[in-house]
Amino acid sequence: MGSLKILAVDDDPVTRMLIKKKLIKEDYEIEIAENGVKAIELINNTFFDVVLTDLMMPGGVDGIGVLEAVKKKNSQTEVILITGFASVENAIEAMKKGAADYLQKPINFDELFLRLQKIENLIKLAKNAGDLREAMSVTEDNAGHTIQNLELKVGELQNQLYEIEDILLKYDLDPQDRIESALKTIGA
């Protein structure tokens, strides 16, 4: 039932394989990376809806590094962090940097699927809102052009009327002359 494209990053091969197996079973499209550096390579090449990353990883780029790279590349990608019990505070720090959620180890997959479902719903909502906005913007653009053209036309006509009024009010001139020069202003 899943329709998200997910990248899972973990330095532990057992966890990696477990996540992959479980997510494939739920029909998610999944790729894996064994460290932060590899993850960033993948992120820079393809779009993922969700990046699921371990917080503590060796090799220079940890979960926060992955999070920062993701947010820099495309803020539409959501990041879920996986943390050990001891690093909950770091996880909260990460939420402040734009992570969508965090899970504690050992991963409870029911919980993970719930979070993914929530993200999927949000993405759908955002798409609906985006579609609506786009439809509104197209309508507004069109209406805007029409209204603005009319507005200018009316403005022009109004000015002509003022001119004609001015001419017709020149009581010192001969009525016939006034009428003729009034007609001239509208090109008649």
Binding site: E140, D141, I147, Q148, L150, E151, L152, V154, G155
Partner: peptide
Amino acid sequence: GSTESLTGVCPRFVPKRHLKSI
């Protein structure tokens, strides 16, 4: 606003165009 109009609202204002905007 882009879809608003002052026609019949306030004759003191004159609409003017610059490029694509009013």
